[in-house]
């Protein structure tokens, strides 16, 4: 299937000489939720801004649903909705007016039913006649999302949508994202909350220092990079690991009461059974055991550290 967004050899050098993006190649699949992770200043917002037409690319090409974002900008931009990171709203407009304005700006004829639907979905309906400056920060964030959805985009960019947002709005937002995805909208989001990406995304891209370090299916990524650990809580403390267990990747806690075994979930045999038998044979008794899996956050931190 043709990618809905295709970024080829994209570079961006700002007038200051700063290279914000270095030869980015990235395909976004139709209908997926793609999470773009990266530390502050890695180039996430620049990449989104370039695709949306706010930043001029220095080199490279971007196609949105097959339309070049420069030569055929009308077709490309009309299917994109953008929710920016900053809370940039008009102050004196009413919610209804500003959302209707966005729809017109993106070339769609007025459709009060659709605006009503969007406002209701975002719990903004009872605020529709309020001036935007009277709204709270969370409500302004909802207004920005409503503006982005006003013209029924097929691709939605959410640039850190949940930064500084309360629990309720976060939950609403993820519900909205799921329902949009079900209706076939492709969603690209950046976030600092890695647990969000872990929960929501189909694929994950990591950007660091203006370069795409990794793009992978989330499940695949977790599998590939995920290490699992089995911890045995010992009945009696050990001074050192018995020689009979030397063949395993074991670590004894400093107090000598926990034995941790690290293994690869990808491997054909995890070796757990054999380990437990050998532990038994060595006369070590344990009262409990538990396993832990490294989270996306651990993976992310490792990747970014390696990239620097």
């Amino acid at each position: 299937m043709q990618a809905i967004i295709s970024v080829k050899n994209l570079s961006k050098t700002y007038a200051s000489g700063f290279r914000a993006l270095k030869n980015i190649n990235l395909d976004i699949r139709r209908g997926e939720i793609f999470a773009l992770l990266g530390p502050n200043g890695a180039g996430k917002t620049t990449l989104i801004g370039t695709i949306c037409g706010i930043v001029n690319p220095s080199e490279g090409q971007i196609l949105v649903d097959g339309h070049d974002i420069i030569a055929d900008y009308r077709a490309a931009r009309s299917i994109i909705g953008l929710v920016p990171q900053e809370l940039t709203t008009d102050a004196f407009e009413s919610v209804w007016d500003t959302v209707s304005f966005s729809r017109g700006l993106f070339g769609k004829p007025a459709n009060p039913q659709h605006i009503e639907k969007v406002l209701k979905e975002l719990s903004l309906w009872d605020k529709k006649d309020n001036k935007i400056r009277t709204l709270s920060g969370g409500m302004k964030r909802r207004v920005l999302i409503a503006k982005a959805l006003s013209h029924e985009p097929r691709v939605l960019f959410l640039d850190e949508p949940t930064a500084g947002v309360d629990v309720e709005l976060r939950r609403d937002m993820w519900q909205l994202v799921s329902s949009l995805r079900e209706s076939g909208v492709t969603i690209i989001l950046t976030t600092h909350y890695i647990d969000e990406a872990e929960q929501m995304a189909d694929r994950i891209g990591v950007i660091s220092n203006g370069e795409i370090v990794l793009v992978e299916d989330k499940a695949e990524l977790m599998r590939k990079l995920g290490k699992k650990q089995l911890t045995l809580h010992l009945l009696n403390t050990l001074e050192r690991i018995p020689p009979g267990l030397a063949g395993y990747d074991l670590h004894l806690s400093s107090k000598g009461n926990e034995l941790t075994y690290t293994y690869d979930t990808q491997a054909e045999r995890t070796g757990i059974l054999a380990l437990l038998e050998d532990v038994n044979a060595a006369g070590i008794r344990f009262k409990d055991l538990h396993t832990t899996q490294s989270s996306l956050e651990d993976i992310f931190v490792t990747l970014v550290r390696e990239g620097q």
């Binding site: 900008y73 009309s78 994109i80 953008l82 940039t88 008009d90 070339g107």
Partner: peptide, 14 residues
């Protein structure tokens, strides 16, 4: 000044 120009720049307008 307010930053709302992002919308104008990202819109399909010539």
């Amino acid at each position: 000044f307010t930053g709302t120009i992002y919308e104008l720049l990202s819109a399909p307008v010539s």
